[in-house]
Amino acid sequence: MNAPREPVLSTANDDLVIGNRTYRSRLLVGTGKYRDFAQTKAAVDASGAQIVTVAIRRTNIGQDATAESLLDALPPSQYTYLPNSAGCYTADDAVRTLRLARELLDDHRLVKLEVLGDAHSLFPDVRQTLKAAETLVAEGFEVMVYTSDDPIVARELEAIGCVAIMPLASLIGSGMGILNPWNLRLILEQSKVPVLVDAGVGTASDAAIAMELGCAGVLMNTAIALAQDPVRMARAMKLAVEAGREAYLAGRMPRKFYSASPSSPTSGLIS
């Protein structure tokens, strides 16, 4: 990786810019797989995330009316909700789900589009994703789109009008980290909208690497929720995203196989 990338235009304090909104935190987190709402909230807060993803599911009818809901633990007034279309395998279902999400959240239009192609691997179906993206963008949604790391698909999704491209690092929930930094780099080089790694982050260094490559942000869920100590991992991820971003903006030294260039002076050696 030798060619330096043009610095990304950003706000004076390097806020994350998505569509016409700005955010201080470049770490976005999911709210699934936690032990309970208390742990969800503790982890989300430790992560510093301002944007949280949520799923849309049938309400439990007949449940205790006083039972706490996710919205009680994480009020939509305090966090930016990013409803997803998780669990959808067709464009029609994804569009239907996100329309319901928009109604649910009082015409909130920022959504995460995700259309899966396989229940075993949870790999995205990019054709259905492209189809859904066209419909959603035409209806005024601001679409942050989960996709594969195929740069041609990413380019098409951006051309359709998605406000952010979110390629996977590796399979959802796998914790394998970034498997193909070269594809990610191709996407980063061509994209004028923010690129956020989404899926497959496993530990802090994965998030830092994503940011060092030049990603605008990172979205993760399992990496935090299934850590031995989720709140501690949430803190680690917050630091990792900040560290990776600082390193990216600082402009790293070049890699060379060897350089015979010691850090200490070569003159004045005793003999």
């Binding site: 999911g30 797989k33 949520v54 849309i56 919205l71 869920n221």
Partner: peptide
């Protein structure tokens, strides 16, 4: 009728 709400998810 379908009645849905927001739940935890990634």
């Amino acid at each position: 009728l379908e009645v849905v709400g927001a739940v935890g998810g990634g």
